[in-house]
């Protein structure tokens, strides 16, 4: 069993090119579980946790968060606390302390679980996933990258380096929420994030993502359009929620879980928006 541990990005990429079938390993919280369940039988491992570029969070013109940054590091990062507290908040709801010690941002993206907790936050933060292949780097928004449950559109030989996102401005308002069956170790029954900017009492650049509701991450453009340029308002939030619920129905059709999720999505979205607006007042 080969267990490769590249210590530089170049090395990682060339090893990946050499062994495209090897399993990329970071925190192991998904890989090792899938192996146990017989859903994965790695031929070899490519451990990316020693690649320095993937371990960083830096704040330049944009913020870069490396793929091998753990949820604990997201949660505790002073940079994120200042410029993207939404991502830290989402990370703090992942699994348990032990899972947060290990689970990484890149793993959360690559596994493409519809219930992933970081994905709605990254989507609402308009994060671009930075992907490096032998040919160079490309960037993709999550709704384009993730095509369905477990389906992250990476080409062979490509590696997720991390994400870039714009720092929140002074006027940014945000919220994150998660419905779980219990208060820890919970897979999201629904989660969601919203980011907007408040200008002269009006909402601008609203970005809204509700997770565990559709097969892949989606921005709810219809609801966003309803809110754009409007004043925060309870009824408006509810109408936005209805738009979200309608969009989920269109995306998924009626399913066993729709009986619960469709009406909940209305009020859950409204509450996300209210919380974001309230955060502005505080």
């Amino acid at each position: 069993m080969e267990f490769l541990r590249p210590q530089a990005l170049e090395e990682a990429l060339s090893l990946l090119a050499e062994h495209p079938a090897y399993t990329i390993l970071a925190g192991g919280t998904d890989v090792v579980v899938r192996r146990r369940e017989g859903r994965l039988a790695p031929e070899g491992y490519l451990d990316v946790t020693l690649v320095p570029e993937l371990r960083e969070i830096w704040n330049g013109e944009s913020i870069f968060v490396g793929a091998a940054v753990t949820c604990r590091e997201l949660e505790e990062s002073p940079i994120l606390a200042a410029v993207c507290p939404l991502l830290a908040a989402a990370a703090s709801t992942v699994g348990s302390p032990q899972i947060r010690s290990r689970a990484t941002l890149g793993g959360n993206v690559a596994n493409a679980s519809p219930a992933a907790d970081l994905i709605p936050a990254l989507t609402a933060a308009d994060a671009q996933v930075v992907i490096q292949g032998r040919q160079g780097t490309r960037r993709a928004a999550l709704p384009d990258l993730i095509q369905g449950p477990g389906r992250c559109a990476l080409e062979p030989g490509e590696l997720i380096l991390g994400v870039v996102l714009e720092p929140f401005r002074e006027t940014a308002r945000w919220s994150f929420d998660k419905i779980g069956r219990r208060n820890a170790l919970a897979i999201a029954r629904m989660n969601g994030a919203v980011v907007l900017e408040e200008e002269g009492g009006q909402m601008r650049n609203v970005r809204l993502c509700v997770g565990a509701a559709a097969r892949r991450p989606v921005r709810f453009r219809g609801a966003e359009a309803l809110l754009e340029g409007q004043n925060p308002d309870k009824d408006l939030f509810r109408r936005a929620g209805e738009a979200v619920s309608q969009a989920i129905l269109e995306e998924t059709g009626m399913r066993e879980s729709s009986r619960y999720k469709l009406p909940v999505a209305v009020e859950f979205t409204a509450r996300l928006l209210e919380n974001a607006a309230r955060r502005g007042q505080a």
């Binding site: 348990s96 069956r181 219990r182 208060n183 820890a184 170790l185 919970a186 897979i187």
Partner: peptide
């Protein structure tokens, strides 16, 4: 125990 849910210390 991922789908059979015992209460945690936070519940």
């Amino acid at each position: 125990f991922d789908t059979y849910l015992l209460p945690t210390a936070m519940d």
